[in-house]
Design a protein around this nucleic acid. Structure first.
Lengths: 334, 334
DNA sequence: TTGAAAGCGCTAACAT
DNA sequence: ATGTTAGCGCTTTCAA
């Protein structure tokens, strides 16, 4: 097949050991360095990382296991990780698992067979078996967007963000605040709901349970849910859409009903900064900084690879969200 | 580190060659098979694909090089490929290149060093250097969403789809048809524009150049463009948004201007089936079947791996689009 | 500074 | 059917 270190050695008239040293930046004589470099160029030689990896027991690859890649949150983080780590020669093996915990386990095995240097996992709430498998693994693991005992984690302060939003709405005089959550067994959805309830408790108010909705976190889900909400006898004065898709659905439904946001009702959305900024009025929204999250994940992985952090210490990074306030929220009663 | 074939052999009391045969489904005695299987289980042994790959000169990995992963079209295809190939033990290494042709080349080298078995490339229009590099490569390559001489390709019939759309609009009596394209140097944008012009030519009509717009294929781009269009003295009677983001922007702008689609103007969108179906009226749209595309890509790759297709034959797969007609388009003048 | 040689974990002749 | 052995392309002692 392609040229090997042997070909380079022969052409340069040195031993393969010397070429290897050159490749690994171990000092060799100037003259040899020059001739080896020339040989490499003219043969268009490229180090076989597989062979090298077999020897030194690393592959310069990391595996990413996630429920669903077709999701701007996931891809945003993956891109950020890939961007950071590729500069250090790493490649990212992505495994989309179609929201299926069983497939997550299968793909974990696949990645382990490929001897990835590390693992980045976006678990599902019911990934019990996966977690058990992960506990047996000895390579660095970073868990994303969920807190799991005993693992390094990077996540967003979902509860804090939802608290901040709800608290703000309450402070603007709203008490009939609708929240459109995701599936009941979705970690982030639960966290965001917690923030919502916490805000009411903090204000010594009762939680308006009739305004709590669960959807499948899709645009049609949000759309239909809002359509239902607007059929209610006593409509909420504010609506909180807790993810991108749902918020888009709400937005579309509201436009269809000819409702003016910031007038007929106050609206807080999640994610979709770009979308939020172009509509009129711009939407109040919670931004999850996926680039930052990917960077944090990468740093943790690298610090584990370099054994910079004691194994006894587990790293928990809660990345703050950025909450944008706009005229989509107004004082209640106006 | 982890257990090796040697450990299994020792535990089972056979040679490593026998274990290897077992692993590769070469027939061995029943009794040995049983004892080896037990040893593997109790040691939790897993074959080292790296070592195996070094020997047999394959890695069971494919590299994907694309301009931008954060894009439902790209991710849809990647997921489909990964789904198909992972069943055969392959992993996918994704390389997001931030729309930068130079980075594409850099990441190609990275992947080549990892000895991927094949390459799946979504080129940019100005990926000249990348293409030159790819010509030197000996592993199977599949080009996606663009036609490049000498390579196997899978793409959508962009021109045909745009023709069909425009032809339909013309047949409904429209002649002031606005098209909102992407960047001037974007392959699919160019193809779609070709279909648009072809339809006018076919009907012996002049192309209404004042209604041809270029954007950056983003939602704000589409939004702003439509806002400008609606300031025109003589407004178009139909608008064709040629990708998802642009169509969403148009939709939002129209709602904001209180325009009723299918009444104030006819609208044809691209992609976003889910979105298109939930608004009122549902949107006429062109669907690109990313799952199908990923499957085609996978089949081509596999047929090349298995040398099922003569090297002299290049495979060109044009995946048809699915055009959905709804009440978002009405007869002109109504 | 350099090179010979062992060996990473596996496969595939080949011989038994 | 099984085992011995060479070797995939590389790194890394160790001796020169």
């Amino acid at each position: 097949m392609s040229t090997t270190i042997k070909d380079v050695a022969e052409m340069a008239g040195v031993s393969i050991a010397t070429v290897s040293k050159f490749l690994n930046n171990i000092h060799i004589s100037q003259e040899n360095a020059v001739i080896i470099e020339e040989s490499i160029k003219s043969l268009n030689y490229q180090k076989n990382e597989i062979a090298s990896g077999l020897k030194v027991n690393r592959t310069k690859t990391v595996g990413v296991i996630l429920p669903r890649l077709v999701d701007i949150f996931s891809t945003g983080i993956v891109v950020s990780i890939e961007d950071r780590l590729s500069k250090l020669g790493y490649n990212v093996l992505v495994c989309d698992c179609g929201q299926d915990p069983q497939i997550m386990c299968t793909k974990l095995r696949l990645l382990l067979g490929k001897k990835v240097d590390g693992l980045i996992v976006f678990p599902l709430l019911d990934s019990k078996e996966l977690i058990e498998e992960l506990k047996k693994v000895t390579i660095p693991i970073v868990i994303v967007d969920q807190k799991i005992e005993g693992f390094d984690t990077v996540r967003v302060d979902n509860e804090g963000a939802a608290f901040e939003v709800t608290d703000h709405l309450i402070s603007k005089g709203h008490n009939n605040i609708a929240i459109i959550c995701g599936p009941v067994f979705n970690y982030t959805s639960i966290e965001r709901y917690k923030g919502y309830t916490k805000a009411f408790r903090t204000h010594d108010m009762e939680i308006p349970r009739q305004y709590v909705f669960n959807t499948d976190y899709t645009t049609p889900g949000g759309y239909n849910c809002f359509m239902d909400i607007w059929k209610m006898q006593e409509k909420p004065t504010a609506v909180f859409g807790t993810n991108y898709q749902v918020s888009l659905g709400i937005l579309l439904a509201a436009r269809e009903l000819n409702l003016k946001i910031g007038k007929d009702f106050s609206f807080f959305s999640f994610d979709n900064f770009e979308l939020a900024q172009i509509v009129d009025p711009p939407l109040s929204t919670v931004i999850q900084e996926t680039r930052l999250m990917g960077e944090e994940v990468s740093e943790i992985f690298l610090s584990r690879m370099n054994k910079e952090t004691s194994e006894n210490i587990i790293i928990e990074k809660v990345v703050p969200t950025r909450v944008i306030y706009t005229d989509s929220v107004v004082e209640a009663g106006f």
